[in-house]
Amino acid sequence: MDHDKLILGGKEFTSRFILGSGKYSLKLIEAAVRDAGAQIITLAVRRANTKEQESILDYIPKGVTLLPNTSGARDANEAVRIARLARELGCGDFVKIEIMRDSKYLLPDNQETIKATEILAKEGFVVLPYMYPDLYAARALADAGAAAVMPLAAPIGSNKGLAAREFIQILIDEIDLPIIVDAGIGRPSQACEAMEMGAAAVMANTALATAGDLPLMAAAFRQAIEAGRAAYLSGLGRVLVRGGSASDPLTGFLRS
C-alpha cells in the first residue's frame, strides 16, 4: 500500500479522494483536506469569485493540486476557452472537462467532451474528462489524449450511488487509464464499493457538504476509500454460489 500511488499527468498522489466543486465553503475545504486527505480540489472557474474578497483560491492550502473545471460550458469551444483562462489565471495544466447541455440533469455531453479533450490535450493540458459511462466514448477520450476518464456513478448531486455500476466496471476493465468515479456518490459505502471494483479514485462533494457533521463524514470517506482500495489490491475473497455442483465430472473424457 505504501507504494500505491495515483498518477495523473506525471504527478503522484497518495490520496484517492478528490473534492468536487458543487457546494463550496471554507469548512468543506478544510474538512476535505484535513479529514478526508484530499490532495486534489476542483474549482469551477466560471463560478470563481471575481471580487477581491472570498476567493476560493485563497482557501486552497499549500501542496494541494487545483483542478479547475469547465463547469457551465455548453460546448467544446466554451470548455476550451475556460481551460485556457484557468491556465492564464495560474491554475496549472490540470483541467477537468465538464460540458453540459442540459440544465435539469446536468448530464455530460460525451461528444463535445471528446472534441474538447483532443484540443486541450494537444495544448499540453492534463485533461480529466467527466463523462457518461459509455465504452465507445471512453475509448475516444483515451485516443484523444485524456489523462483519466471520469464516469458519473449517478446523476450529479443525487447521492444515489453506483447506479451505473456495470458500465463503470466495463470502463475499468477495458480502458488503460485511471477511472475516477465522479458524481452521484452519496455515502462512504458507495465510495468503498467503487474502489473495490478497481476505480482509481472517487470524487465527491454533495455527500460531504450536506452531512450533519462535516469533519466526521470527511474522515468516513477517507476510511471507506482506503478500505476499498486495500480490498481491491488484496483480491476479493470467495463468493459462495447457491446450489451444489453436479457429480458427473466434465473432464472425465480425458485420457492422458
Binding site: L250, T251, F253, R255
Partner: peptide, 10 residues
C-alpha cells in the same frame, strides 16, 4: 472424436 465431444461441452 472423444476429446472433441468432451471439449465442446466446456
Amino acid at each position: 472424436a472423444q476429446f472433441r465431444d468432451g471439449i465442446v461441452r466446456i
